[in-house]
Nucleic acid binder design. Structure first.
Lengths: 147, 147
DNA sequence: GACTTTGTTGACTAATCTAGTCAACAAAGG
DNA sequence: CCTTTGTTGACTAGATTAGTCAACAAAGTC
């Protein structure tokens, strides 16, 4: 039940973009440096996010990448799906034909519930949520004053 | 976010044992055949389950394997942990030292919530639950009469 | 229009993991 | 002693992961 670095790095990269939302394109180089990701590897992770309509890119000098939609409209479920493929823990959950025992298999039912549970978390979390959490973490003292 | 065949096959094998609970040892060969798992592969999956105290084995003629505990006391969380290792989607959830950014990383927090969600399902499901679901599936008509 | 900056794409690769297979061995029963 | 059954360790083909590298494409800059 592991998430590969694609999903991890991709999410961190998008968080970085969300944090700089509205400030023009961010350099891939800067994302890579700030999030400690190999630049060449990051290039390959951005590609499916652009194709998926989450990221917009600008080439040339003063170029970079930025979010194609508002942070509150980008759910982690979408990000993970674009970078890792289906969220289902086993193939047969998505397509029953993957196994001839699907109909009567109760383990399949459980893996289906597992998928639902995972999806519940990822579907309910947007980049905006991540940004808010991040800001809260970075300003613990100020937050305290207002409580 | 995939479960490998270890977790899948292992769960199916244990379900098979739970279905024959109290009827003496079951042959690995029979489990393999009924659950469509390679016998040689299954042998390797049983080993950690024995070490983990979930399965008991009997060697020699009329031998086989059986559950070491009652089905209602074997949770899927334990099974998956024995066969796949930690359930955490990323390493840093279990040990923060895995990444120097752990403290301030909000993505880590989300992966932690994901782990909780997964654990919630696996922790609340026992082999007994699987057996009951299986019996219900196999006897749909009789069940209908009593509704 | 030449030059520089930046993203895009595809080829390639080392290391690791997966899903097995095979053979030798150990214990128990008949 | 022989057969049955589980146990263990060595080995492997193929896939996946996590990159690297180089050539290219587009967009500013001077």
């Amino acid at each position: 039940m592991k998430l590969s670095t694609r999903g991890q790095y991709g999410t961190r990269a998008l968080l970085e973009l969300a944090l700089h939302q509205g400030q023009g394109p961010v350099l891939l180089r800067d994302i890579a440096q700030r999030q400690q990701i190999s630049l060449h590897y990051l290039e390959h992770l951005i590609s499916p996010l652009i194709a998926g309509g989450i990221v917009r890119s600008t080439r040339g000098a003063r170029g970079g990448v930025s979010l194609a939609r508002a942070p509150e409209e980008i759910r982690l479920s979408e990000v993970v799906r674009l970078l890792e493929g289906s969220i289902a823990p086993v193939k047969c959950v998505d397509n029953p034909e993957a196994c001839n025992r699907s109909e009567l298999c109760v383990t399949r039912d459980i893996w289906g519930e597992l998928k639902q549970a995972i999806d519940g978390v990822l579907e309910s979390t947007t980049l905006k949520d991540l940004v808010e959490r991040q800001r809260r973490k970075e300003q613990p003292k100020e937050a305290m004053y207002y409580i």
